[in-house]
Structures are given as structure tokens and as C-alpha cells.
Design a binder for these strands. Sequence first.
DNA 1: GTATCTGCAAATCCTTTGCAAGTCA
DNA 2: TGACTTGCAAAGGATTTGCAGATAC
Lengths: 140, 140
Amino acid sequence: MGQPRDIIHKLSELGYRVTPQRMMILSAIENSDSHISAEEIYAQVVAKYPRVNISTVYRTLELLKRLDLVTETDLGEGRVRYHPADRGHHHHLVCQECGAIIDLDESALFSLRDTLLREYKFVADLRHLAIFGRCINCRQ
Amino acid sequence: MGQPRDIIHKLSELGYRVTPQRMMILSAIENSDSHISAEEIYAQVVAKYPRVNISTVYRTLELLKRLDLVTETDLGEGRVRYHPADRGHHHHLVCQECGAIIDLDESALFSLRDTLLREYKFVADLRHLAIFGRCINCRQ
DNA sequence: GTATCTGCAAATCCTTTGCAAGTCA
DNA sequence: TGACTTGCAAAGGATTTGCAGATAC
């Protein structure tokens, strides 16, 4: 995992077909240095292969989510963003004033995760959590 | 605050008009024992007053949010839920397997809030956070 | 060959908006 | 009276779906 190649291998191992569309969608996700939206993936793929349809992008993302190969984050933009599941996990502080997005290392939530497990027996999926508030520049 | 009456009073103090629609919408929110969606508010109001339109519900919610009289929570359902702002704040553990929603006292996130403030100078708005994962019944 | 995928077009869901008519203060 | 609100209808954006044709294996 980690390279589109490996994910593609995994897909075919599981009996899913490796199509050019799926490969291009995977590349777009892997090559994005941050989180990418369905629309942005579509824009990249359509540039190389104008016949793709955005529904193929959504169907592929659906599949990759189900196989736990990509994760979703909702940064409160009214659309979801995607990320390879095996990349370093981190969280986001989203400033509701200026829109700034500050990355937060996953370790910042380790103690919360432990508390939830210990006291609530709840296994929290703390990959790509978004926390809303106001950043230092927007506090007057 | 706390009673529809008080919120209504606040509205008129601020120069907003007190209309029957707004009163009915406020009652629906206040009478809900948990978080209520726009559609559910609309259903309650329309039962008494069939002429209301759901756009009035959305416009009223928009106003109440702006005045900080209600807060929004996104429980990952593809629609947002509303809650009177002065009710006790709590968070939600949402089980992605069975859909169970476990309430989590706001105090569970106090130390996270302090860390974010101290180390990131970020004022987190930790009202009604949703944390996804798996509950005790769904862990095999 | 055939079950899986795709493109296309249309539908869906939640929410927002323009505008003319209605109404609270 | 007059500015604020509403109802209605239509638009909006993101995502999903039905179906017939295309394609990976």
C-alpha cells in the first residue's frame, strides 16, 4: 500500500477490475499533497481522458472507502475530501472566521482516544477529525 | 433564555419581528428532547399551520444561529441537526456500524480544548462535536 | 463469453434564492 | 405606513441511480 500500484494490485486480488479510469482516479488521490475533493479528482482525470464521467469518480471513491483504501474528511465546506488511508493521520483546526486550516498531529488526540476506550468502550476512528473554532489571527 | 418566551423576547429586543412561524419553529426546537433536523421542525410546524414553507424554517434557523440562540451539529447523516444553544453542551459518539449515538459530557474534551489553546492558540468551538467509531456492541 | 464497469442523462436530497404579496410594529 | 417576513416556485450544488452499451479478464 502507499503506491497506486499496490492499491491496484489489491483491487485485482479482491476480484475488482483494474480499469484506466480507476488507475487515473487513484493517481489523482495519491499525487495530491493534501486532501482532494471528488470534483478536483474529476478535473484531473478529465484533462487526460475527456470521456470520464464524474459518476465514475464517485463510484470509485465509494469502492475505495469500502475497502478502507481511502478515508473521508468533512472540513465543513459542504463537500467531502479524500485522502489515502495509509498516509500519516492528522487532524484539522478549521478557523470559522478566515477559513484557515491548521494541521494538528494525531498524537494530540491520543489521550482522548484512550479515555473514550477506557470509559465508554468506544473505539474512536480519529482519522482526519475536523475541529472548528477561531485561529490566533481572528481572535481580537 | 431557555424558554421560547425568553428567546422571543430577545428577538424583539433586537428588532426582529415575532411572527407565528418563528414562535412555532422555536417551540419545536425547545420541545425536542434531543437534536432536531430542519425537516422534522417543518413537519411539526406544518401539522399546526399547513401554509408554512420549509424555506421559512431554514431562514429562521439561519437567524437563530447568527444570534447564537441555536447550535448546529453534523452527525454525519447528510443533514444538520439543531439544538438550543443554552442547553447543556455535550458531544456525540456515533457508531458507524449500528448508528447508535452515545452522549459524551463536554468535560471529556476540556483537556483537549486547553491543549489547543495553549499549543496552537486556537479557540476551539467544542459544542456538539461528533466523533465516529464503533460502540462496544459492534466490536467483535 | 460474461459479469463487471462505464457514460450518459436524469433524479435525488438538502438547502438557498428571487420576487411579489403579506404582515408586524 | 414601511421595513421586515413569508410563500411559492425555481434554482443550486453535491451526490446517486437506471440503464444500455462497453470492456477487463
